Simulated assay, not measured.
Amino acid sequence: MNDEGQRRGSGRRTPGAGPRDASPDGVSPDGAAPGREKPPRKPDDSAAQARDVVYRLLASRARSRLELRQALLRKDIDEEIADAVLQKFVDAGLVDDASFAEEWVNQRQRSQGLGRKALGFELRRKGIDEHLVESALSTVDSDAEAERARELVQRKLRGMGSVEHTAKMRRLVGMLARKGYSEGLAYRIVKEEIENAGDPAADSDLDLP
């Protein structure tokens, strides 16, 4: 073979050889065989990722155990690993549904003016056990709840001067009901505040459904 043929032959690939970037054992640089998926994460890797997710979420605000568990599952963390990691946070006192429930009730009542019904609904949706829900709701002061409802009605009344009395009553009672206040409390507060505003029809009764 002449020199030119040797040069051409030196650039040829041996029949059946894999791609140039494959390792000698046929495994690609990312650790997976050609045409196959990457190997699953090791349990230690998943646990570390789960801890990072939990720490990051808790850094922004307190969360219930169910909220954290759902977040881990959305990250494709195995259920057993997620539960094991969360139990360690519970044992360390960093995840506490009882404390979370009380903090949630106080914060939501102050910031959103929510009544007991709405607060209980939110806690149950977050996976808080019923006895913890009842315990947290028991911390709501009845006088403070009534005062918060009164503030909401007073604020709304300022823009309802031309609204007919019955419509005004229904709108205000409905607003408090949506905020989670009991029907009796809502009706009493609305009636008192309309009377205080000098509505001449304030003595009339509203037929509630």
Rank of each mutant, 00 (worst) to 15 (best):
E145L: 04
G115P: 07
K168N: 09
M160T: 10
S162M: 06
A146G: 10
L137C: 03
M169D: 08
A146P: 00
F121Q: 14
R110M: 15
E122I: 06
D143N: 11
A146W: 10
D143G: 11
G127V: 05
M160C: 11
S111G: 07
V173M: 08
R125N: 15
L172Q: 02
D143H: 06
G113M: 10
D129E: 11
R155S: 11
G159D: 15
E151I: 11
F121A: 14
E130F: 07
R170M: 11
R148W: 04
V140E: 01
S142K: 14
A144Q: 13
Q107T: 12
G115L: 03
E130L: 06
E145C: 10
R148K: 14
G174R: 08
K126H: 11
V173S: 04
W104N: 12
G120V: 12
Q112F: 15
M169N: 03
L119I: 09
Q154M: 13
A118E: 04
D141Y: 01
G115R: 03
G113Q: 04
E130I: 07
R148D: 08
A149Q: 07
G127S: 09
E122G: 13
V105S: 07
R158V: 13
D129C: 00
G159I: 04
G174S: 03
G115C: 00
D143F: 13
A118R: 14
R116G: 01
V163R: 00
Q107C: 05
L132H: 15
A144F: 06
K117I: 10
K168L: 01
A118L: 13
E147L: 14
E147F: 13
V105E: 04
L157R: 00
F121T: 13
R155W: 09
K126C: 04
K156Q: 11
L114V: 03
S138Q: 12
L114R: 05
A149L: 09
R155P: 03
S135K: 12
E134V: 04
R125C: 15
R124Y: 01
R116S: 07
K168R: 15
V163I: 06
D129P: 10
D141S: 04
F121I: 06
H131W: 10
R170K: 14
V133Y: 02
